[in-house]
Design a protein around this nucleic acid. Sequence first.
DNA 1: TATCTGACGATAG
DNA 2: CCTATCGCCAGAT
Length: 97
Amino acid sequence: DRDRQILDVVRLLREGEVVSYGDVGHDAGHSRQSRLVGRLLSTNSDPDLPWWRVVTASGRLVPGHEREQAARLRAEGVEVEGGRVRVARYGRFSRHP
DNA sequence: TATCTGACGATAG
DNA sequence: CCTATCGCCAGAT
């Protein structure tokens, strides 16, 4: 269903890849569902789901999870500064598409 | 059915 | 760059 499609898109994100909630919704075939994407991630219980690779459209980290998220992203080569993603290796925030 | 809420997004100032 | 607003849409109450 819809929820599964969205979570599957998140599962496909690879190391160093950072995209926005809106991107995930778009790629899953649900263009205006950024809020749904956020809700699914917030309630998700799968420990293997790479939720830290999803940020806001402006590169802001997830409210309330900045520390944890920044640590996970830096561990895979993503540059985080001032609570936002500067440069990712792949995806929406990469400087080398 | 009516309202409120929120891991959102775009835009104006 | 930041805040204020407004649009959006599914869930919860």
